[in-house]
Design a protein around this nucleic acid. Sequence first.
DNA 1: TATGAATGAGTGTTCATTCAT
DNA 2: TATGAATGAACACTCATTCAT
Lengths: 228, 228, 228, 228
Amino acid sequence: MSDRPRKPAASRAPRARTGIAAPSRAAPASRAERAAERRAAIVDAALDEFIARGFTATRLDDVARRAGVAKGTIYLHFKDKETLFEELVRTAIVPLVGRLATLPPPAGSVRDALEAFAKTFIQEVASTRRGDIIRLILAEGPRFPAIADFYYREVISRGLGAMRALIALGIKRGEIREAALADFPQIVVAPAIIAVIWKSLFDRHAPLDAHALLRVHLDLIFGERSAP
Amino acid sequence: MSDRPRKPAASRAPRARTGIAAPSRAAPASRAERAAERRAAIVDAALDEFIARGFTATRLDDVARRAGVAKGTIYLHFKDKETLFEELVRTAIVPLVGRLATLPPPAGSVRDALEAFAKTFIQEVASTRRGDIIRLILAEGPRFPAIADFYYREVISRGLGAMRALIALGIKRGEIREAALADFPQIVVAPAIIAVIWKSLFDRHAPLDAHALLRVHLDLIFGERSAP
Amino acid sequence: MSDRPRKPAASRAPRARTGIAAPSRAAPASRAERAAERRAAIVDAALDEFIARGFTATRLDDVARRAGVAKGTIYLHFKDKETLFEELVRTAIVPLVGRLATLPPPAGSVRDALEAFAKTFIQEVASTRRGDIIRLILAEGPRFPAIADFYYREVISRGLGAMRALIALGIKRGEIREAALADFPQIVVAPAIIAVIWKSLFDRHAPLDAHALLRVHLDLIFGERSAP
Amino acid sequence: MSDRPRKPAASRAPRARTGIAAPSRAAPASRAERAAERRAAIVDAALDEFIARGFTATRLDDVARRAGVAKGTIYLHFKDKETLFEELVRTAIVPLVGRLATLPPPAGSVRDALEAFAKTFIQEVASTRRGDIIRLILAEGPRFPAIADFYYREVISRGLGAMRALIALGIKRGEIREAALADFPQIVVAPAIIAVIWKSLFDRHAPLDAHALLRVHLDLIFGERSAP
DNA sequence: TATGAATGAGTGTTCATTCAT
DNA sequence: TATGAATGAACACTCATTCAT
């Protein structure tokens, strides 16, 4: 219960694991650039800490240390811990949506589109820190209605909308038999979410082959299995 | 961010919302009974608080007030906050498993069995505090490996095992076409979990008809829709 | 810092290490006897605990456990922790004084008398729990003026008085040359006190031969060494 | 039993009663200086409290108030209460040893040296808070072996060593007749310790003329009285 | 802007004391 | 009398937030 970072573990250079742009370290960097860099470092460090411990248990001291910044500096960029958390989640979610919204325009079959989506999802979400963000939202959602709202609006609502359209197309084209599926796009997404949760909590008990899982699920929806 | 119970909000009578037996209040009750009663009240109150705020943000002061006992009394029953939390989750999970393990032996069709399961799940889990317990485990799991372990062993592993057997039966009987489904019982359960999460986080944005959702999902698996 | 007794280490029979009389366990014992016995057990246990931890750090829970009594029982015999402590010290001191006041009437030489005193002191005080009581008084005295007062009156004052008389006799008889010694009987006693403290604190660093120490001191006072 | 300081009794200026240097308050003082100053104030206040109440009964709240700092500030300088106590005693002991180790090299007679020592001891120890520190160590020693060890090593062992050398010199020069005294330097020091204890506990019952006491003791050792 | 020392309200835990049995 | 469950005030320690430098 006490595996906290005790040393300035992180170098001053922020990692870009969330896709947050890290300005090149070459040039002396302008004032504004330096500020943005620091802010990014804080966000990045905070994300790690929040994921690892949850909102309340995270100490800004640790965030600062991990970001290579003084504690007070956090308050130059964020009003308080709560604001940091909320902006953080927002920031982290944007590229998430961006990524998945880039669903290839249904050039090929709907099944291909979903297959591509599944692949991307596993690679970009389930196997990365982004998956933990989803868990974080599930965990803290009830205490941060603002975040749940934002998440519903920006991710759930839009994501399910796109999915619904795709399903409708599949039904129209005859690829999908089950017509009612368009009413519950959640069904299509459900195993992906389960995969994320499983990775987070149970993978060490029983590793899950997410690719296979999603393929079977698509088989269920589309009826026929395509060669892997 | 500060909607905490400030007054002895709860009467001395423990609620039995989790199925924890509340001894009849009529008789004077023996010493041991009184103790069990108090313990139950604490567990019950703590569950509410932990669900509402998560482990770290929960104050034992609030738990005590809600349970109608003095703070010190908690320590007569539990070593510390962590132990309270862990025993709590264990206690809460047992009836959960009990409930669902009572899956009717496949007298009728497998589809009927799953339909019954879905119904029970929605009634007994998704619409009650038990659903929140699942969310609580998702939220705190990473910080309480002991709980994640216990949950995997007692619920996930056993539940998926039973589900797998049922699926195998369905395949053998020809009810289920997709043979690979037996490898991923998670797929069958996924929408139920999603429904629980949805209830917790998004129901106020867009109420979900869980019954319909699960029915469509079963249609997907069994191919044919039964009359509602 | 946490070597507390966790088990009912002591049998129900009180030890009589302080010279507190333990009624014979044979007969069923009258009501009053039983009570006295319990009280003695409490006193005895409390003495051990107070010596080991000091007043504040001692927990009545531990005292009760060690005495083989319920916590509430202590309050049937003593008003509160403070009273227990004060009565305790009084009780423990009385036999101490009794013992040493039995200085053999100066039948033989004064040196013989002091030699006997030294021997008794080492045997009955320095090597027993009684020595620790002295240390306990040193430690808690300032916070328990009542005890310091009592101790001064009953032990210090009377003891030094007796010692002064003995010294005067020695001077009169020509055994002691240094006449001014009668003004400071503390000097005669000092090494004995030092021996007690040493036993308590430093004996494990450098064991002290208290007998030899006191003999040399007597040689200093009486000038000539008697054969050991 | 409840004479605790309730108000910010101490001004922000730390007292220097222990010989801990108090930086001049005139200049604005650098960051480091301010820190050292605060630390000194805490040590000073803590010493008072520990002496007055003992380790366990001392409340850090009181220490903070007396030092004129916030409670949290204590934890910027010391890991916890125990560490504060131990460092405190160490800090307080160093100048004690320093003072007494400055025993004038035996330019004159050994008796003169001891006379000087006695004088210094009474002035610098017995009549100051330093004497209470000795009592504090006697009191808490058994519960703080680290402190007892440190004290033995730094004070007792070295002090007795020096004393032994001095005694040997006295014997060699013929000033001291009792040859065995070199084996028990404790005897020479004993009355000084007794004086300290007496001051602490019994002086209000019967004031002790420590100077006279020690002079008589020296007469006992050296045989002849020098003019006062 | 950035720092990090300082603050003090807040929280988990302990324990002397009470009291129903 | 004796018990020990229950109480709640007290206290060590933490950590979000501020602010002088």
